[in-house]
Design a protein around this nucleic acid. Sequence first.
RNA 1: GCGCCCGUAGCUCAGUUGGAUAGAGCACCAGCCUUCUAAGCUGGCGGUCGCAGGUUCGACUCCUGCCGGGCGCGCCA
Length: 586
Amino acid sequence: MKHHIENLITSALAGLEATGALPSGHGATVTVDHTKSKEHGDFACNIALVLAKQVRAKPRELAEKIIKALPASGKITKVEIAGPGFINFFLSPSAYHSVVRDILEKRGTFGHSRMGAGRKVQVEFVSANPTGPLHVGHGRGAAYGATLANLLDKVGYQVHREYYINDAGRQMDILATSVWLRYLELCGEKFDFPVNGYKGDYVYDIGATLHRENGDKYRQAAGKIFEDLLPDEPQGGDKETHIDALIERAKSLLGTANYRKVFDLGLKVILDDIRQDLEEFGVNYDQWYSERALVESGAADRAIARLKKSGHVYEKDGALWFRSTDYGDEKDRVLVRENGQKTYFAHDIAYHMDKLERGNDQVIDIWGADHHGYVPRIKAALAAIGDNPERLHVLLVQFAILYQGGERMQMSTRSGEFVTLRELRDEVGNDAARFFYVLRRCEQHMDFDLDLAKSQSNDNPVFYVQYAHARIHSVFRQMQEKGFQHDPANGDRHLVRLTETHEITLIQRLARYPDILEAAARDHEPHQLAYYLRELAYDFHTYYGTHTFLVDDPALRDARLNLIVATRQVIANGLQLLGVSAPESM
RNA sequence: GCGCCCGUAGCUCAGUUGGAUAGAGCACCAGCCUUCUAAGCUGGCGGUCGCAGGUUCGACUCCUGCCGGGCGCGCCA
């Protein structure tokens, strides 16, 4: 409908240009908006105000000309000039009634569009280090990313959902070493667990599995392990150098093959857990992409070679640097350390090069806000190798700050002090969690009061929306008890009977659904859909409260039933995109 | 110190690429179940849109400066 009016105005402007009444090449794009107030009609256009200045005409006079040049449309009953020069459009009821028909025909596909024109877009999200279970902070990225991917899919993009597994870095070595140490404790070895090791309970569990399946196979004497080792923090040393030394000791004592076995067990157990957690949360991926596999394929070396070729790489202090300052970064970045190891950054350049080489027109990364300083250097690298950094969109999701008992909770995977996503899902349910996470703009800091989530989960607006869906099902159950039949064809013939204010309001809301999907996808703002669904549910509940659907007049009854079936359909469609169930009864 | 994000009702947040009278939920107050599920509906209370300038027909929205909060500034990942 919006596009229909935009087209009308565009052709009116073209007509005016043709007759010379309006200079051509003004370059203004026509935008039509929904009005806030009913007295301003259904849609409004501000084109006259926008053009007035360049054309040197009074806005109201210009608006008059445009209105006269508008092609006729059966969907519009009245067009008028208002205020400083807005053009307000009043739609005929029949224009809206057809929406009900449209929804009943398209059902699950109602609202889909071809805005994306089949362009390939990759959405990478969560990608938490496999060093522990997902916590509630990751949950936000999961819900946000999954919903955004769903939205893009429905508006015509070819979407590829991906999880990047950081299985090649130091954090994973710390995990593997932590697992090994817990295993050694079970073997009977006595020593102080490193300050910087992973202390979560799950590390014990993995260590226990290792012990159960392998007995003393990987056992080494504690004295040998800690002999001449750099001291840990409590002994006056540095916890970082201590853990690094411990990792090296583990590798040398176990040997490459056995160290890898311990490492892989930890990785597998945790990754399986993450996969299952996300799957239960309704978050699915097309691909799980391993950093280690990427590096072993030589991609990082190729990336560095390409950067060298571009002439933005130099050596200093024995390390290899990328001159990212050439592209606006605040300082240059190391690619290869003095010890010959490539940095995470080098791997990430390779990964992003790979993403673009895979033929994605657009790449969306969803990161935690603490990584924001990382964005300029990645874009700099893409620019240096001749790719267009505009193809990469990095969306930063702010942390969910947890409160319990009015106290702010710390979230640290290392210390093992965190609330897991699984615990949250158990407490409030998947539906409430998915909906709640997506209710805020991603840049908005989110306060998550656990006590509130647990004790008052019924206040979550998701139940309000689900209730509307369930109520409609209930109407049909009641209909059968009363011995009525729903004849959709009859209802369709009598849509004109839907003239009550609440009916028109509801129909107009339904008509907006396709616009909402496009806007939410385009702006990467899933919350627009969540808010829309709440408003739609409100329109329905109000309608429900003021009018009876199961009336004796078959024409009116069938028309009303058509309307609420359409409402139920749109609610179900929207909830599905949010990953929330649409129950038939509550 | 520099950079990014945020600041809207008592609380949590929307505000449709600058539009008409700034909204919702929660909380609080008053009503509505012999009629399709009261997880609902109706009405009320509640605001210097952090502060001060600027841009223009028009600013919660854009620009500048300040104040306050979060995060980041490694040869960690």
